[in-house]
Design a protein around this nucleic acid. Structure first.
Lengths: 255, 255
DNA sequence: CGATATTTTGACCCGGCTCAACCCAAGTGG
DNA sequence: CCACTTGGGTTGAGCCGGGTCAAAATATCG
C-alpha cells in the first residue's frame, strides 16, 4: 500500500534557500513556468514522498489523496482487463506529473517501476493552487498535450508496428529519456537501465514475454545492442537501432 | 486543400442574441465554463468554417493557421508511416477541440470524416484568449485530460484486444457517441452511421479491411447488429455487443 | 551454495494477414 | 435501356508472425 511510503516535510530555517530553487526537475516539471513568488507558495504546500520499486502509488478505482511531480525514478501506469490482460498505458519519467487534480479517482494503477521520489501535493490543495496560479495551469496544459502526443505515438506503435519495430522503438525511447553516453574504443555507446522486467516490457508493447526476449536476443546477435544483468542496455549502433524502429525521424535522440 | 473551405462571419446586429448562446455544443465544448462576458469576447473572435467529407482540415507538418471546436460532423486524426502504414489516432466528435494553440505545426493530419462545421479561431488569437480567459484554459485542460484517457483506453484496445473485441468496442463507441434509439417491435434499437469506410475502420483498430469485414459479418450473422448501405448500423442486441467488447464496464452507454 | 525467480530458447499452433476472386451499387456512355 | 466501368465490400484459401506450451539456462538472493 502507498501508506507505507515515507513522507518528509523538513522545514528549512527562514532565509535558507528554498527547496524548489534547487529542484532537479525545476526546468521541466509542472512548475517550470512559475516565478519566485509562485514558487514560494508551492514550496509551502509540497512534501516529498518516497516509493520503493514495485510499490503502488495510486490504485485504479481508489480515492486519490495526492498528486505531484516525479523527481527521480520511473512510474508505470497500467490498465488491467477483467481476465487479467494488461497494458501499460504510460511511463512517467522525472519531471512528469502524476494524478488528476480535479478527479477523486483514477482509471489506472500507478506503480513505482524503480525507486521513486515524488514532489507531492494534497489533491484538493493542488487544485486550488492550479486555479490561483496561471503559470501552473498553463504548464500543466502544455505537458498534458505532450503526453497526449506521446500516447498517440504509442497508438501507432501498437496498431501498426511489427514486434521488431516495437522493441527497437522501446529501446530508442529509453536511450533518449534515460540514456547517457559512454566513450568506447570504437565510438560512443548509449547506456541506460530499463526499470521493467520482460513481462512489463511486453505489457508496454502488446507482446508476450517470449517475443520480447526473442527480439532483444536478435538485436544482440546483430551487435546492435549489448545487455548485462537483464536490465542494463548498451546501444552499440544507434543508427542501426533507429532504422529498426520504422520511424522516419530520430525523435530528437541525435545531438 | 483547406483553403477551399467556406468561411462565414455574418455580423449580427447589435442587441441580437449572440450566436454562442444558441450554440449546439455550448455545454460540452471548450467554452462550456465561460460566463456571458467571456462568451461575448469569444463571439467577437470566432468564425464558422465548413469542410466537406474527405477534405483536409490540418496537414501533418504544415503550418496551423486556426484552431476550433467541432460543431457538427466527425474529424479523424491520422498518423502515417514512411511506408504508408496508417493509424487513426483520434476521432473528434461535436464539442471536441481541434488544434494545439501554442504550436505552429501539427504531427498528424486532421481530415473531415463526414461534412464538418467548425467554430474556428485564428491560432495566435486563441492563444491570447486562452491566457486572458481562465475558464477557457481550465476547460481546455479538463478536455485534454479526457482525450488522454480515451487515448489510453485505445492503447489497451490496440495492445491487448482480439479482432472481435476491437470491432465490438468500436461499434459500442459509436453507439454511445452518435447513436439514437429507435422503437422496434422487439425492444429498442440503437441506430447510428459510421462516417468511415472499412479501410479507415481498420486504421482505427490496427486491423486489415478484410478482418474488419469478417468481424462485422459475423456480428451480423449472430443477429447482434444489422447493417444497411455499408455504413448504417443498427444494434439489435446491445447487451450482447457490450459483452463482446471485453470491457467490464459499459462505458456509460446504458441509460 | 542451494533455492527461487526471471529469461532464453525450441517446437508447435492459430488468429489475423495476404492474395485473389467475386459481389453489388452507382455511375457513364453508346 | 443496357453493357461496361469503377469503387467499395465480402468471402475463400493459404501462409506467417507472434502466441502458447514446455524445458533449459541464467540471475538473484538468502
Amino acid at each position: 500500500m502507498s501508506n507505507d511510503a515515507k513522507s518528509t516535510r523538513d522545514d528549512a530555517p527562514a532565509g535558507a534557500p528554498k527547496r524548489c530553487a534547487i529542484c532537479a526537475v525545476r526546468e521541466t516539471s509542472v512548475c517550470a513556468l512559475c516565478d519566485a513568488k509562485e514558487l514560494g507558495e508551492l514550496d509551502a504546500a509540497n512534501f516529498t514522498r518516497q516509493f520503493a520499486a514495485g510499490q503502488e502509488i495510486l490504485g485504479a478505482g481508489t480515492p486519490v489523496a495526492f498528486v505531484g511531480s516525479v523527481i527521480s525514478g520511473v512510474v508505470r501506469l497500467t490498465r488491467t482487463m477483467a481476465d487479467g490482460r494488461r497494458q501499460i498505458v504510460g511511463l512517467l519519467f522525472p519531471g512528469d506529473f502524476i494524478g488528476r487534480a480535479a478527479l477523486g479517482v483514477s482509471d489506472y494503477d500507478a506503480v513505482a517501476a524503480s525507486d521513486v521520489t515524488l514532489c507531492a501535493f494534497r489533491r484538493t490543495q493542488f487544485e486550488a493552487l492550479l486555479r490561483a496560479t496561471p503559470h501552473l495551469e498553463r504548464r500543466r496544459l502544455s505537458m498534458t498535450l505532450d503526453e497526449l502526443d506521446a500516447a498517440r505515438e504509442q497508438l501507432l506503435l501498437l496498431g501498426r508496428k511489427s514486434a521488431r519495430e516495437k522493441v527497437a522503438s522501446f529501446l530508442a525511447l529509453f536511450a533518449r529519456r534515460l540514456g547517457h553516453d559512454e566513450e568506447a574504443d570504437d565510438g560512443v555507446t548509449r547506456v541506460f537501465e530499463i526499470p521493467l522486467n520482460r513481462d512489463e516490457i511486453g505489457d508496454c508493447l502488446g507482446l508476450t514475454i517470449e517475443t520480447v526476449s526473442r527480439q532483444i536476443s536478435r538485436l544482440r546477435r546483430e551487435a546492435i545492442i549489448e545487455v548485462a544483468r537483464n536490465r542494463e542496455f548498451r546501444v552499440l549502433d544507434l543508427q542501426a537501432l533507429l532504422e529498426e524502429t520504422g520511424d522516419d525521424s530520430d525523435g530528437g535522440i541525435l545531438s
